[in-house]
């Protein structure tokens, strides 16, 4: 197929027809190229319209309506009532659901980022780096249901985690059943499961740091700690920003792991926004409140992401 978008070189451009104005021909050609370009873009634009703009508009409509999820003709406008219900005194959406969501995301980012920096730095100095990266990447390709269930069994009163504690002479801990330990326990699993992708990004970032910087620092007498703090970490900032933003977004929207491990319990101890929205919509047929909750979460995600970008930009990283 001829690539009609490729600009023709002047010497190969055909002469305008005798008698036809040259400018008009060029305009027609450019117009045709624009049309063809839009035709090529059409599938992608259609995809976005159908799977992004349409649901977004529908969710916006539902957030100010009452709808039970069955009959499209029964959507009843209620104004800001759904938002008011979410933010009303006594509503569990802000506390504990939204606070759990933020704590879950923050905890996951903190653990995964720290762990992945340590592991990526170690892997960068080892032989068989591909093997190590593959091993750490395995949780990513494992289904969340399997990961959640295996960890759930490990956390059980007679499970591996309590077995280790008992072997050390310590008493058992009801990891997932004690409201004080349930959320941190799930955070650990989410961080463990997302370690692989973070390590992959960070090892690529480490590889892009020229070895000459480390050599020059070593010649100047800088120790490993100073080199890591003054050279490696600052030059790793773009990768850290990417990992930080993507992990945080994933954490804020997390749903599957919590569903498998705790279903939001005990009580509301591990209930997060995505799970609450799912329940409101699919279990209780309250699509209006669920959509309003989605927009509140969207606002939170937007604010947090902008704040992250601003912090990193201030620190010298132009995202």
């Amino acid at each position: 197929m001829v690539n009609v978008l490729t600009p023709r070189s002047p010497e190969r451009a055909p002469d305008p027809l005798p008698g036809a104005p040259a400018g008009h021909g060029r305009r027609r050609g450019r117009h045709r190229e624009t049309v063809v370009a839009y035709l090529f873009l059409a599938p992608a634009l259609l995809f976005f319209a159908v799977f992004l703009l349409l649901p977004l508009g529908f969710a916006l409509l539902l957030s100010v309506s009452r709808w039970t999820g069955f009959d499209l003709g029964a959507i009843e406008p209620v104004g800001p009532d759904n938002f008011a219900a979410l933010l009303a005194d006594g509503s569990t959406f802000l506390v504990p659901v939204l606070t759990n969501t933020l704590l879950f995301a923050l905890g996951t980012v903190a653990l995964a980022l720290t762990g992945s920096v340590v592991v990526a730095t170690c892997v960068d100095r080892l032989r068989f780096q591909g093997l190590w990266r593959t091993l750490y990447f395995l949780p990513i390709v494992t289904t969340v249901v399997a990961v959640g269930n295996v960890w759930k069994y490990m956390y059980e009163p007679g499970g591996l985690a309590n077995g280790v504690l008992n072997a050390l002479g310590l008493g058992s801990v009801a990891f997932l059943q004690d409201p004080d330990t349930a959320l941190p326990s799930v955070v650990v699993v989410q961080a463990w499961a997302s370690l692989g992708s973070a390590i992959l990004v960070l090892t690529a970032g480490l590889k892009s740091i020229p070895a000459s910087y480390h050599e020059a620092a070593a010649l100047d007498g800088a120790g490993p700690g100073t080199v890591f703090r003054r050279i490696t970490l600052p030059l790793l900032r773009p990768s850290l920003l990417f990992v930080c933003v993507t992990q945080f977004l994933t954490g804020l929207q997390s749903f599957a792991l919590i569903t498998v491990m705790t279903r939001g319990g005990p009580g509301d101890a591990t209930n997060v926004a995505a799970l609450e929205m799912y329940r409101l919509a699919f279990d209780h047929g309250d699509w209006g409140t669920a959509s309003a909750a989605a927009f509140v979460l969207f606002a939170v995600v937007l604010v947090v992401t902008l704040a992250q970008l601003r912090v990193f930009r201030r620190a010298g990283e132009d995202a």
Binding site: Q177, D178, P179, G265, P266, G267, D268, A269, R279, D283, H284, G285, D286
Partner: peptide, 18 residues
């Protein structure tokens, strides 16, 4: 259905000492 879920959460809060 929602009332049932709310009752479960409060039962669990009781069992866990919350």
């Amino acid at each position: 259905a929602r009332a049932k879920t709310l009752l479960r959460k409060n039962i669990e809060a009781l069992w866990t000492g919350r």
